[in-house]
Design a protein around this nucleic acid. Sequence first.
DNA 1: GTCTATAGGCCGATAGAC
DNA 2: GTCTATCGGCCTATAGAC
Lengths: 173, 173
Amino acid sequence: MTEKKEKILESALELFANQGYTSTATSKIAREAGVSEGLIFRHFGNKAGLLRAIMEEGNRRLRELIAPVLAETDPAAVVQKTIEMPFGVPESEYDFWRLQFKLKWDEEYYNPDNIKPLTEKLVWAFTALNFEDPEMEAQLLVQYNDTIGVDMIRGVIRDRPAFKSFLLKKYEL
Amino acid sequence: MTEKKEKILESALELFANQGYTSTATSKIAREAGVSEGLIFRHFGNKAGLLRAIMEEGNRRLRELIAPVLAETDPAAVVQKTIEMPFGVPESEYDFWRLQFKLKWDEEYYNPDNIKPLTEKLVWAFTALNFEDPEMEAQLLVQYNDTIGVDMIRGVIRDRPAFKSFLLKKYEL
DNA sequence: GTCTATAGGCCGATAGAC
DNA sequence: GTCTATCGGCCTATAGAC
């Protein structure tokens, strides 16, 4: 990965996240990245290819975020780490995740398989913890985490530490 | 409201919801609605005006959905009705709500004030029910509802009645 | 008064040639 | 790294049908 190529991805990410994909011109991306417009097409073929590259990066980061939970062997810790997950995302990455969430609403880019391993791990954990309905608990928590992620990015949640402990307490952790 | 005008709104809604606002051409809307393209501009001024009209309808429907909860005087019933809310939305309206969720990501169209009355009502209810932290409970439930709305639209939730009772049980209702 | 058909101006974006 | 061909989308305008 060359430096210029990385700069293109970075600029595209910021612009796509804030102005939307279609309303961001490749010329604007090039200007922002300090490269010639042609270079974008050399590296990514077309504008859609650029978006695709960003999506792949998104899936990679999601797997990275989930990995520690999957590696966990203590059921209670699985639930706890899942809840804490969105709170651990640094603000510097919000642009990135905002774009990912946005793209989830475009059918062609939505891939539900990405979080399947997490759901399965949670089912296992809730079963081990003797919850009455592990499948539903797992589903609720996974989807709920999504919502929390959204709200964090939007800045809806004011007192984050308090909200986190509130949640942990709900699961008696 | 003439018939053609209504047909335009209908087609625009479907296309915006499924293909996105910017990537939907006014010519396509006209074709889908079986009207001349010029008519769109006669009725709505421009493309943004068309979207605005749809959004206004959205806020109206949201208020309609929330109204019964606000009218409720029994605290437990407030919580119960809130939980049941998303389950009562007919599938025929999913396009509509999908668009609303999608547009939440465009700052200019997102208006958080819409659900504020609901949150406040829930704070009141949870206080009356002696929950330890009414503000956070209210916030949590509102977010749950968002999550569930999203899941229903995506078709993630398979057994809806079961999931509904699962949630109600969580609040001991 | 609502609507269609058509024609076209304007703009900006993609893509690729050089 | 610039320049340009080409295309598509937004919107206006007009003349006239129902």
